[in-house]
Each structure stands twice: as C-alpha cells, then as structure tokens.
C-alpha cells in the first residue's frame, strides 16, 4: 500500500458525506405508510364504535402517521450518507442513534447487491459488504441508484483482487 491511502483515511472531513438517491425518500415514505396504515384503520374502527369522544383516538394517530410518513423519512434520509474513499467505504446513519462505520476494502470478504420489489420500482439497490468480524459482519448501504451500486461493487471487488495478488 502506498502512503496516499493513509492520508485519505486521516483527512476525511466529517461533513463530506455523499447523500443517497432522492428516490430513497419515497421508498422510506412507502415503507412508513405500509406500517402506519393498519394503525390508522384500527383507529378508524375504534372511532366507529362511539366508545370515546370523536377524534380522541383518530386525531393523534393520524397526526403521528402523518409525521411518520412525511417528516421522519426526510430526516432519516438526510441523516444517512456514505463516503467512497480510495480504499474504504464509510457508512453513516441514524437520527437518534447515530452510527458511523468504516469498512476498509482490504477486509471485505464478499459483496451483495440486493433489490427488493419496491427498490426495483424506484431503480434503487442496497449494497452490502461482509467482513470476517463478529461485529459489523455485514454493513448495509441502502438507497443507491442501481447502476451506481453495481459500479461500486465492481470497484470494491477489483480492489480486493488487486490487493490479494
């Protein structure tokens, strides 16, 4: 390894994150909506039974659901980001519980590019790096444009092969 790599590690600025694809917000919103819908329906049913004053249950539930669908995904999206360094991938995520993981390419065992049905619709993919460590055995990076995810995979793989040889 040359000395460049070492200096890149040291000089990663804390604010130089690459943000995820804008479609990732839509994906998070749909996922939040899918979780919220049953609660909203339940509250509507309770509303219909006339057991409580009108709006006492549905009001708050609808408000929380609205927040969870509109506001939270946007904040989650902004909290996430990554840095594709010369010899490492840094993944940052979390609003309340923040985590900042770094996986050096030299420690990657194998790589996955996964696409769920929703991700396929929006042209997104999740990149997963596997390491031999017990902690962070797999590091996921969702919300990448699928072409980019594949390109990143190829780049990391090429890096592994080159270092092994």
């Amino acid at each position: 390894m040359d000395n460049d790599a070492v200096t890149t590690n040291g000089s990663i600025a804390e604010d130089a994150l690459t943000s995820l694809h804008p479609n990732h917000v839509k994906l998070l919103r749909i996922q939040a909506a899918l979780i919220a819908i049953p609660f909203v329906i339940t509250s509507l049913v309770l509303e219909g039974t006339d057991l409580v004053p009108p709006g006492l249950i549905f009001g708050p539930v609808a408000l929380i659901a609205l927040l969870a669908i509109v506001r939270v995904p946007l904040r989650r999206h902004h909290a996430r980001g990554y840095v594709m360094g010369a010899d490492l991938l840094r993944v940052v995520r979390g609003i309340l519980f923040r985590s900042d993981s770094v996986v050096p390419f030299g420690r990657v065992q194998h790589i996955d590019v996964n696409q769920g049905p929703l991700e396929r619709y929006y042209g997104l993919a999740t990149l997963t790096l596997y390491t031999a460590g017990t902690h962070n055995a797999s590091v996921h990076l969702p919300g990448l444009e699928q072409g980019l995810a594949r390109a990143m995979r190829e780049e990391i793989r090429a890096h592994i092969r080159q270092e092994t040889l």
Binding site: L96, S99, D100, S101, T131, G133, N136
Partner: peptide
C-alpha cells in the same frame, strides 16, 4: 487484524 471500525452514539451521547 481488525475488520472494521464503527463509532456509535445514542441521543444523550450525541
């Protein structure tokens, strides 16, 4: 011989 590094922070820690 380490494989990865993670810095984790909860709400208070932040």
């Amino acid at each position: 011989k380490l494989q990865s590094v993670e810095i984790a922070q909860g709400p208070i820690a932040r």
